[in-house]
Design a protein around this nucleic acid. Sequence first.
DNA 1: TAAGAATATTAGTATAAGCTAATATAGTAT
DNA 2: ATACTATATTAGCTTATACTAATATTCTTA
Lengths: 114, 114
Amino acid sequence: MTVLESSKANTQPNSSSNTNCEFIKGILAGSNMEEASRYFKAISHPLRLKILCVVGVGEMSVQDILKTVGTTQSNVSQHLCLLKDKGIVQSRKEGNRVYYSIKNETIKKILGSQ
Amino acid sequence: MTVLESSKANTQPNSSSNTNCEFIKGILAGSNMEEASRYFKAISHPLRLKILCVVGVGEMSVQDILKTVGTTQSNVSQHLCLLKDKGIVQSRKEGNRVYYSIKNETIKKILGSQ
DNA sequence: TAAGAATATTAGTATAAGCTAATATAGTAT
DNA sequence: ATACTATATTAGCTTATACTAATATTCTTA
């Protein structure tokens, strides 16, 4: 059950404004807004969104990613690093190359719900 | 059809790596990453996420919002302003008070998919 | 009309993000 | 070993975010 659903379910029609605030406040305290927003933040950059769409299709090397999204090697590398740090993508080394793919299923869901 | 779906559907099994890059590149060019990432950015702050969860339950006055999320009046007001600018929430004035509610349905979907 | 409440706006400041350019590291092939 | 390719890291700079404190605006009510 999401935050929205759980708070809707328990809203009494005759509850005072203040009680309702307190109730929702309790729900918010239980949800991890910090963590959720960290995920959203990670994907809230046009280049990272592109990278995720590209990598979402399937595992891809950095070379191919940067050819596809069109920026510098350093820039892609830094964004990939950030995405990996947040646990959104994972990487696998094969010889000279590093292949990236999406690690986190939630991200796929979110990208699909656009 | 989302970006992920459309690019998956057309991936030929025998296509070379380069052709695939070009293909995905075309899809990316057609999608509006700038706009999508602007949405994600808007909700990628813990306080704004809280506000959206609160307001997602139903229309709520600024007073009640700030009692619920717990910060200063100015801070809430600035975040609400940002959310309104991006077309994510809408406001309605009634006497002394201003009531906010979620305008954008996509946001509800995204919040639900967490 | 003066006081009070609710909301918005502004200015100033601190911190975070994002980019480029340069350099480092690691693997491959000659 | 040397040169080359792929990727990562670092430093420096610029711009964007986010907060606080103060002030402005708008509405209500005595």
